[in-house]
Amino acid sequence: HNLTITQGKLFFHYNPKLCLSEIHKMEEVSGTKGRQERNDIALKTNGDQASCENELLKFSYIRTSFDKILLRWEPYWPPDFRDLLGFMLFYKEAPYQNVTEFDGQDACGSNSWTVVDIDPPLRSNDPKSQNHPGWLMRGLKPWTQYAIFVKTLVTFSDERRTYGAKSDIIYVQTDATNPSVPLDPISVSNSSSQIILKWKPPSDPNGNITHYLVFWERQAEDSELFELDYCLKGLKLPSRTWSPPFESEDSQKHNQSEYEDSAGECCSCPKTDSQILKELEESSFRKTFEDYLHNVVFVPRKTSSGTGAEDPRPSRKRRSLGDVGNVTVAVPTVAAFPNTSSTSVPTSPEEHRPFEKVVNKESLVISGLRHFTGYRIELQACNQDTPEERCSVAAYVSARTMPEAKADDIVGPVTHEIFENNVVHLMWQEPKEPNGLIVLYEVSYRRYGDEELHLCVSRKHFALERGCRLRGLSPGNYSVRIRATSLAGNGSWTEPTYFYVTDYLDVPSNIA
């Protein structure tokens, strides 16, 4: 807008934040220059609390790290170098490059900038070799853009010569660093050979998330399962459950009422301010606690030095998902009996873990797994792929695949051998790939016309006998059925096997 004052003059007093240069501009645009008398524009009460600059400061050096910015700028000295009290560095987070010096300023003089007072450097006698002032900004957020400017702080001049310097606002972004852990990993099994893994992005990506790394490792069953005799009275049979499938998407929606109208769909109840505040506090606490764990609990591995020492970490090797089922080394339970199943799973520490690289999504279907087997899954978020990966501390989750139908069934015939004193040795093959492992066998036998009897055969007993022995049988026709019990439950009964026990007292003698 054009402003013209045809008559009258300007009068400025007691404006401590208004620089004289701005008042002189007002004289020019209003056409009143030359009308004012000496005392109409006070030299001592206008701009006496402001830094009124008329020179431009330029930054000469900028260096960044993930949490620091090192700045240096060209030296500046007023005509009387004693008038320079120091520099004021202003900075704040700036997602967009549209910041002005006066953003967030209120009537009390406060604003949204963080201000650092910096002492002037030592003055050199040689004007050509003056030290460049600077400042190291610490405690910054990774991968965050900051708006920065600097200006001088000078003393009051009796001659009211307006001098000083100020830089333009520059924008500097800190470097990326390792992201925080992925949030809320959930693993479920939808079949006997697959596990579905879902997660949420890290709360602090500290860069642009480029991919996720998912490692999985087959877990050995508890050692007590191999040692305890679950045929003993009072000892509860062990059981394991597989990871249940995901709930429906509708039930997972946030901010939804727990109660549904019987007449149909209901609208979600909005969260109160107290609920939102509580969630923010919980989120802040979780982030602080995660940072504490990362800094205190997890110790970084030592990389190899120039002395030739090897990095103890196993090298990563990509495998196809079809090879995942046989990740671990199978060892027989008892070496003397080769027909026992290889369900003991000690994992070799030198073995390469299978892994998958996930790009542009937060889910993965891990296939080719062994049925009813526990897996430990390790999830890392990465925001750099080359020249070397920059990934987060791992988040861990466990899951067990679903049982395989008929995996616990005894394959092959049940054979028998009759000894003296009416002892019958029953023999059968253990299931080759049971659900988890076989903890015991149930032997059901009966003599024709009598009630059915049951015998429990422990895992250890089966390994020693290759089956079991029935003792003290009365003469007669017998039928026997056997079924295995694994961590997933009972298998199917075998087809009945028949044998006849004679009275050993009636056996004919070869003595003449």
Rank of each mutant, 00 (worst) to 15 (best):
Gly207Cys: 01
Asn208Met: 07
Ile209Cys: 14
Ile209Gln: 13
Tyr212Leu: 01
Leu213Ser: 13
Leu213Val: 08
Val214Cys: 10
Trp216His: 05
Trp216Val: 11
Glu217Lys: 15
Asp222Cys: 14
Asp222Gly: 09
Glu224Gln: 15
Phe226Ile: 08
Phe226Cys: 07
Glu227Gln: 10
Leu228Asn: 11
Leu228Phe: 08
Cys231Met: 06
Leu232Gln: 14
Gly234Ala: 07
Pro238Thr: 05
Arg240Cys: 15
Arg240Glu: 09
Ser243Glu: 03
Ser243Pro: 11
Pro245Glu: 09
Glu247Phe: 15
Glu247Gln: 11
Glu249Gln: 12
Asp250Pro: 11
His254Ile: 06
Gln256Leu: 11
Gln256Met: 10
Ser257Tyr: 08
Glu258Val: 04
Tyr259Ala: 11
Asp261Ala: 09
Glu265Asn: 15
Glu265Arg: 11
Glu265Asp: 14
Ser268Met: 12
Ser268Val: 08
Ser268Leu: 10
Lys271Thr: 04
Asp273Thr: 03
Gln275Met: 07
Leu280Ile: 12
Glu282Asn: 12
Glu282Cys: 14
Thr288Phe: 04
Thr288Tyr: 11
Tyr292Glu: 04
Tyr292Arg: 05
Tyr292Cys: 01
Leu293Pro: 01
Val296Thr: 07
Val297Leu: 04
Val297Thr: 03
Phe298Asp: 14
Val299Ser: 03
Ser305Arg: 13
Gly306His: 00
Gly306Val: 10
Thr307Ala: 06
Gly308His: 04
Arg313Ser: 08
Arg313Thr: 07
Ser320Ile: 14
Ser320Met: 11
Leu321Gln: 14
Asp323Gln: 09
Val324Ala: 12
Asn326Gly: 00
Val327Pro: 09
Ala330Val: 07
Pro332Phe: 15
Val334Gly: 15
Phe337Arg: 13
Phe337Tyr: 12
Ser341Ile: 12
Ser341Arg: 12
Thr343Leu: 11
Pro346Val: 14
Glu350Leu: 12
Glu351Lys: 12
Pro354Trp: 12
Phe355Tyr: 09
Glu356Arg: 09
Val358Trp: 02
Val358Gly: 11
Val359Gln: 12
Asn360Tyr: 10
Lys361Phe: 11
Lys361Asn: 08
Glu362Phe: 13
Leu364Gly: 09
Leu364Glu: 15
Ile366Asn: 00
Ile366Thr: 03
Phe372Val: 01
Thr373Cys: 03
Tyr375Asn: 00
Arg376Gln: 03
Gln380Lys: 04
Ala381Ser: 08
Asn383Thr: 05
Thr386His: 08
Glu389Lys: 11
Arg390Ala: 05
Arg390Met: 06
Ala394Gly: 13
Ala394Lys: 08
Ala394Ile: 15
Tyr396Ile: 03
Tyr396Ser: 04
Ser398Pro: 08
Thr401Lys: 01
Met402Ile: 07
Lys406Leu: 08
Lys406Thr: 10
Asp408Gly: 02
Val411Ser: 11
Gly412Glu: 07
Val414Thr: 03
Thr415Tyr: 08
Ile418Ser: 11
Asn421Phe: 03
Asn421Thr: 10
Gln429Lys: 15
Pro434Gly: 02
Pro434Leu: 01
Pro434Tyr: 04
Gly436Ser: 13
Leu437His: 03
Ile438Met: 06
Leu440Lys: 04
Val443Asp: 03
Cys456Trp: 00
Val457Trp: 04
Arg459Pro: 06
Lys460Gln: 06
Glu465Cys: 11
Arg466Ile: 08
Arg466Val: 05
Gly467Phe: 06
Leu470Met: 07
Gly472Phe: 07
Gly472Trp: 13
Asn477Tyr: 15
Ser479Glu: 15
Ile482Gly: 03
Ile482Lys: 04
Ala484Gln: 03
Thr485Asn: 03
Leu487Gln: 03
Ala488Asn: 09
Trp493His: 04
Pro496Tyr: 14
Tyr498Asn: 06
Tyr504Ala: 12
Val507Arg: 12
Val507Thr: 14
Ser509His: 14
Asn510Ile: 11
